[in-house]
Design a protein around this nucleic acid. Structure first.
Lengths: 333, 333
DNA sequence: CTGAAAGCGCTTACAG
DNA sequence: CTGAAAGCGCTTACAG
């Protein structure tokens, strides 16, 4: 910066003002600085800036897994938002390990990140840590949270599940429900409750497919495949009278389809099948998967919007947003 | 840090040594410091550390897209490596836009990142920028590069494609080849050359499916679907005599399967179908996709290994690694 | 609109 | 093994 100031024949203060967007600089001065920067290939040292200002242009994102298609898409959308705001994303995966999650959070704190976007693991291990962190920095929960007393952005599960139940009923089939493994809070109970409520509202008896092993796995396809195989093996298909299997995620529907085929069924023909999320790959499954689109565009936008929000604007209120899903009808139902 | 030093009754120098892993501290001293840190909930300010040391624990990763399943998986694996090395990943997506790519690179430079892992866009726009950046910082190319004069880690395309050609020939079918859209350099020409070479070596005539519009798209499924639809529509299926469609990526195989079905073919039965990469979803396609597994575990590891390598260890040599693929036989071929 | 000065929280020789 | 001092590259009142 000294060099730039010297080359431009100005003081460091003036150069600093230039980078902080001061409107009081003469066009002439600006140009001199721009020229000097270009000549010296100068870019301000962000660590020095962060040290003195006490904040950085970094935003931390902590997700259970990065390669999970839903999270991958959300991350990509958030990156676009971040870039537009001049923010950089530091990405960490907790890998469903509470210690990794805690370490990631602490590292982000040491970096004085602008804020944190977090999809927490379903566990109480980091409850205290999170509670104290929430006091000193901006933290918004995405898709999942510990308790209602936080900022969050997520899908409107009640609405989106209701949409699918009613659509399936309108096709004159009774959907049996296959729920998520024990990982996503509060989406798991919310979606289940949404299914039950919508069925009852329509005067139908809900049928939740029993889950043999309720381990907190992220292998949705394998989980659904095994649970449904089990159910079919025990005569569930015969006894149930359900005309559709309604899954809480697309990935589960992919596993369910495989299990149905194994039992000689043709998903979309003699047994309707529905997912939830609208992953890109749905269009290329056979049959193409009918699902509900989560509004990940707005979810991602809202999360990043919160990060750059001046806390004063919230006026002490909690930032809590739920976005409505949209039915996407394809071949499977 | 002053507070910690005071609380522990020591000087800042000593506390600093503690964090920099000096072995010359008395156990007694260490414990005092640890206690003080815990009491004060202290973590060193990384920006101050970076400012004075001139380097950070940040590593920049620039990919064309984050939600691309292959990149998502690689990113996840790299994050795990980074965490183990005490590094943090700053992720940026170029979105196939050279200006975004240039901006990402400059931002990473301003952050004094430890190094950059880059999958460049196929374009010459940032050639000069990259050349100058390569001189001042560690940059390793992943899966793709501009010219051979760089550090890179990637799949051994010649080997992996040859593997599939020979497998298909061993099943007594002649594979026609559907190549990647114009985006991946040098993988696209390498794989094509690998196919042609393997066919010729086996005494067979190569058959490359002509591509109508060679736009640089990342919509692999849609691209393959359209190209194959075109080809089938023009009687390619009838005239070719090929017994298998060999695709350069799994995602293309998904699109190809859809096109084949549209023309009344049954992938895996009356027309074999093969992919490349071994995405997780392959197992849940119908038919399950036969493919070749890219060794993304080692590719990711090697990339991160390079980042934390002391340049002196290279002794001026280029770090260039190609990893062999592995055949994964399922139902489609 | 511009300049001189203090300070952000650390590390690193250097001296003891 | 520990302490006093300088300095990393910026920003921010403050004075002109």
């Amino acid at each position: 910066m000294n060099d730039v100031a010297a080359a431009a024949g100005l003081s460091r203060t003036t150069v600093s003002k230039f980078f902080n967007g001061s409107a009081t600089l003469k066009p002439d001065t600006r140009e001199k600085i721009e020229r000097a920067c270009r000549a010296l290939n100068y870019v301000p040292d962000l660590h020095a800036v962060s040290l003195v200002t006490g904040r950085s242009n970094l935003v931390g994102v902590v997700l259970p897994f990065i390669a999970e298609p839903f999270f991958g898409k959300v991350l990509q959308l958030m990156e676009r938002e971040a870039a537009a705001l001049g923010l950089q994303i530091v990405i960490q995966a907790s890998n469903n390990d509470t210690r990794r999650e805690a370490a990631a959070l602490m590292a982000l704190r040491a970096m004085k990140v602008h804020g944190i976007i977090l999809t927490p693991i379903e566990s109480n291990d980091n409850r205290a840590l999170l509670a104290s962190l929430q006091k000193e920095m901006r933290i918004v929960f995405l898709d999942s949270f510990m308790d209602e007393n936080c900022h969050f952005v997520m899908n409107d599960n009640h609405q989106s599940i209701g949409l699918m139940v009613n659509y399936l009923l309108s096709r004159n089939v009774r959907p049996a429900y296959l729920g998520t493994p024990r990982i996503a809070n509060p989406s798991r109970p919310e979606r289940m409750a949404g299914y039950i409520a919508a069925m009852k509202a329509a005067g139908e008896t809900p049928e939740v497919i029993p889950v043999a092993v309720d381990t907190p796995t992220w292998q949705f396809e394998a989980f659904a495949y095994e649970q449904l195989l089990n159910w079919c093996g025990q005569g569930g298909l015969r006894e149930s009278g359900a005309g559709a299997i309604m899954c809480t995620t697309d990935r589960m529907a992919f596993g369910a389809a495989k299990a149905l085929r194994k039992f000689g069924r043709h998903p979309g023909k003699d047994m309707l099948l529905a997912g939830h999320d609208n992953l890109d790959i749905c269009e290329y499954m056979d049959p193409q998967l009918t699902t509900v689109h989560q509004d990940i565009e707005r979810i991602s936008q809202a999360a990043m919007h919160f990060i750059q929000l001046d806390p004063a604007e919230l006026g002490g209120r909690l930032y809590q947003q739920r976005f409505a899903g949209r039915l996407v009808i394809r071949e499977s139902a």
